[in-house]
Nucleic acid binder design. Structure first.
Lengths: 233, 233
DNA sequence: CCAAAAGTGTTCTTTATACACCCATGT
DNA sequence: ACATGGGTGTATAAAGAACACTTTTGG
């Protein structure tokens, strides 16, 4: 037993990590933020940001810390996805990973300054490469969750800038659900909840009629929830 | 460092456990199966069955093993619920728990023979005592999940015997959703999916008209899912 | 024949879907 | 003035909600 193995337990323990599946939207497609692994195993392959859970942080705090360290992103929407525990999922030894999924507001906030610059990169969701570990499996679960959840929780707004137009929102839904939606019906459905605040601001420099900006009103949404109404697209 | 602490790592690791929230239905109420803790911490208090994850089992396998060991139940519906990682959730030290929820077919299969007999006990869902660890918090999450999921996945059948009557099924839904449902509309909704097989068998010895037994047909449900239809109550 | 719960249809209201024209803006 | 996408209303179809009487069984 080497002297740098100084944390000892009566029974063996799996290592515990978190991984973050990070979704973004560039106005046209759903994107995924990946990190090029700098070390073995899977050196050079793409993977989700993540790492080992520390003793004084919750798994969510760990996910947020790793996210910030590896991509520069903070204050994003983050939700626990699923815990993956296949015995052979990490060649370094038994590792259980609590996966989270993150939604980040627009891809403008591109990763990052510092040492890790260039290691993080956005990929279109239909051009995601072979990933390290069981990350392709995790991605499949994350996509399924995103597609299910976006229909009955207003999480789509987390992928758009603070101010957005209805056509932008519709494009987002169409990209995630992979089906075209009727413009008028989409509008009606969204508007009937009264959770968008139309702003006076309009698009500028378009070669066509300018769309109006809106803002998601979280308070109105909360009021809706408390009245027992459910958001649904 | 004592000689029985023989598993050593470079970095400290949290302990990893699973816990099982077990729901049953006695024909009237939703019930919860709890274990009286035989050892500290929380000795004598009620808790979910659960225990430490071994190196050669997935968390689901661990949950199933603990379930069998502590309650005698096997082959039950089991689904990952959520992973709880609050730093102070276990007074023995940092412990992360992957919680599962189980649905067991009727409470007839009462726990168990052997050493642990009598330690396990069903509680009506509205008479659940103060629980050990953060298990009250876990229960709240489990109930929320159950109430949400039962509306769009046919998991209710997992709480009933193989053969059941429509009034039984309706009572189950009413107990879980905590609201009365219209008999005729409930029937229509369920029947339109064509996932129940009416049997020739009827109730016996009732002081009123006997209800017909039905069986859930998993194949028909799968066919439904593949056609893109979704179950919904 | 009475009590008690099972079984069944129809009407009405609400919600979802399908669909076409005018409007604002930049070039 | 034209090309481009933004914004709007209505008619029809489908789904959900409300509701009352007849049937079967045991006592």
């Amino acid at each position: 037993m080497s002297e740098n193995r100084k944390y000892c337990y009566k029974y063996p323990r799996p290592a515990v990590t978190t991984d973050c599946v990070i979704f973004g939207f560039d106005g046209n497609q759903l994107n995924l933020l990946l990190i090029a692994r700098g070390i073995e195993p899977f050196k050079g392959q793409w993977a989700f940001p993540g790492g080992f859970v520390r003793m004084q942080e919750t798994t969510e705090a760990c996910a947020r810390r790793e996210l910030a360290e590896e991509t520069g992103l903070s204050n994003v929407y983050l939700e626990q996805l699923y815990t993956f525990s296949d015995i052979e999922r990490d060649p370094r030894g038994r590792t259980i990973s609590i996966a989270y999924f993150a939604l980040v507001k627009s891809n403008e906030r591109l990763p990052i300054a510092g040492d890790d610059a260039g290691k993080a990169q956005w990929f279109a969701i239909d051009k995601v490469p072979e990933l390290a570990f069981d990350h392709n499996k995790i991605l499949a679960v994350a996509l399924e969750r995103l597609r299910g959840k976006i229909r009955y929780q207003p999480i789509g707004f987390e992928l758009l800038p603070e101010q957005f137009t209805l056509p932008q929102l519709q494009k987002l839904y169409e990209a995630i659900l992979r089906q075209p939606l009727d413009r008028r019906n989409f509008r009606k459905k969204i508007m009937k909840y009264n959770i968008l605040e139309p702003l006076d601001k309009k698009e500028e420099g378009t070669p066509h009629r300018a769309a109006r900006y809106n803002r998601f009103n979280r308070e109105k949404y909360q009021a809706l929830v408390e009245k027992g109404f459910n958001f649904e697209i």
